[in-house]
Design a protein around this nucleic acid. Structure first.
Ligand code: FES
Ligand code: FES
Lengths: 148, 148
DNA sequence: ATTATTCCTATTATTGAAGTAGGAGATAAA
DNA sequence: TTTATCTCCTACTTCAATAATAGGAATAAT
């Protein structure tokens, strides 16, 4: 039960994008890759998926780059994670009853359902903008503050 | 983000064990395997782990088998799943800060922490006995009831 | 025309999951 | 005592997914 690098890198990249794309200025993938310390070539794949899902907008050609396609406070973590990791069914039979025999009477299936919806609930309670804010608060605490 | 067969089969087997081991009578692995429709050889592996973790007791030799080592209402799903799937850290850096660079300032790490503890919370709220009861209620509903 | 970007399709290497196989050790029944 | 029936242990195999890398086509500003 692990989140893959696709989900991890992708989420970090989306937060990065939310932070750095101000006023419609597209952000280079290479810059995100550098800041987040991940392979640029690999990030291309991830943004391919994000783009296909319509959550980011791409500007091609020189000085192109990526933009969020919605306001940062309208993009939940659940949306991002679902795109990159798939719907959070902990087991296949949750969405496809045919995946297990006896799915009708299996009580563990009910548990996996409950657990999956709990996870979605948590992921739905955070947006990109809330994460950006959390991050700025966090780094503010780390660096010294000067009051006049 | 999936539960492996080890966790799925293992949990179902533990529920089966809780249901069929009455009054200290050990249950054959082969019977569990038959009822749950999984490979007996594979179940041996799973019960190896469960036994090593001390959650089940084994009686060797002819007419041997397995028993729960605690009362069914004292065994939480979290305990079982943790043994079989490992602690539910969605990413490695949650338990080992060295796994990611910048773990100190990474805000997604906080999210994975929160999510992990939420999952544990849910899994801790169910025990083997509660699942056995859920199952008996479920099968009762499915079959017709006759009142006198 | 050149340069810098996204986009698209393969390819590879490594790992983990899922299960098999064969036999050793233990114990009760015959 | 022998035999049948269990758990236990180690090794092996097979398959699919992950995590990248690679090379170039399309696009658009300079
Ligand atoms: S129905 Fe899929 S695990 Fe029980
Ligand atoms: S510290 Fe591990 S994902 Fe950020």
């Amino acid at each position: 039960m692990k989140i893959s690098t696709k989900g991890r890198y992708g989420l970090r990249a989306m937060i990065d994008l939310a932070k750095y794309s101000k006023e419609g200025t597209p952000v280079f993938l290479s810059d995100i890759a550098k800041r987040q310390d991940v392979s640029g070539k690999y990030l291309e794949h991830i943004f391919g998926a994000l783009h296909k899902a319509g959550i980011v907008k791409a500007l091609r050609g020189r000085n192109g780059g990526y933009l969020l396609n919605k306001q940062p406070d309208e993009i939940t973590l659940n949306e991002v994670i679902t795109i990159l990791e798939g719907p959070c069914n902990l087991v296949d039979c949750v969405s496809d009853a045919g995946a297990c025999n006896k799915a009708g009477t299996c009580v563990t299936r009910d548990i996996w359902k409950i657990l999956g919806s709990k996870i979605e609930e948590v992921l739905n309670s955070y947006t990109l903008s809330s994460l950006v804010q959390m991050q700025s608060e966090k780094t503010q605490q780390d660096s010294p503050m000067y009051y006049i």
